[in-house]
């Protein structure tokens, strides 16, 4: 097989599913997913706090798993489904986790909130994740909140879990 090495300045075409919609991107090879989301796609909800995977403000879902968008090349996302905070609320209705954050005042400045929420949603959707408080705290520890709203975030996650479980039960009862 003949190898063809693309030059460094070649733009790459990347096709992905972004918040449920197919998107085709033209990006430079070194483009970071976080910068592409924010600067190119104007999705500013995903925040940059450290740019090195140390704060979690950039957490998005790639094929349903929470990842740091700052440590991922856009070019690596070919064919993947990416969900950002903007894709969470459906038809203007807050996601139960967002609703719980509002009720529990699970934030102060709000800058880490999209990342906290994306991590919390992934955690709650993970059927194998442990559910005790200590496990939740550990699982969420990749999301720093310098304002320190940790207690309220944990309360919001517990509340959202109850809400989602009762929703699931109700749906289960329906024929």
């Amino acid at each position: 097989m003949q190898m063809s090495l693309s030059p460094p300045d070649a733009t790459l075409t990347v096709r992905l599913i972004l918040n449920g919609e197919p998107v085709t991107l033209e990006v430079p090879p070194q483009a970071i997913l976080l910068d592409v989301l924010r600067d190119q796609l104007h999705l500013g909800g995903t925040k940059k706090g450290c740019d090195h995977g140390q704060c979690g403000a950039c957490t998005v879902h790639v094929d349903g798993r929470a990842v740091n968008a700052c440590l991922r090349l856009a070019a690596m996302c070919e064919g993947q489904a990416i969900t950002t905070i903007e894709g969470l609320a459906e038809k203007g209705q807050l996601h139960p986790v967002q609703e719980a954050f509002l009720v529990h005042d699970a934030y102060q400045c709000g800058y880490c909130s999209p990342g906290q929420i994306m991590s919390a949603v992934a955690l709650l959707e993970d059927p194998e994740a442990a559910t005790d408080d200590a496990a939740v705290r550990d699982a969420m520890s990749g999301n720093l909140c310098r304002c320190g709203a940790y207690r309220n975030i944990q309360a919001a996650i517990a509340d959202a879990r109850r809400h989602l479980e009762s929703n699931a039960q109700q749906q289960g009862r329906q024929p």
Binding site: G45, L102, V103, Y107, G110, Y111, S113, I117
Partner: peptide, 17 residues
């Protein structure tokens, strides 16, 4: 509950960054 909460929690709030 905060009046700016929904904007912050949906990513609509526009920070300087």
């Amino acid at each position: 509950p905060r009046i700016d909460g929904e904007d912050k929690l949906t990513g609509r709030a526009t920070y300087t960054t």
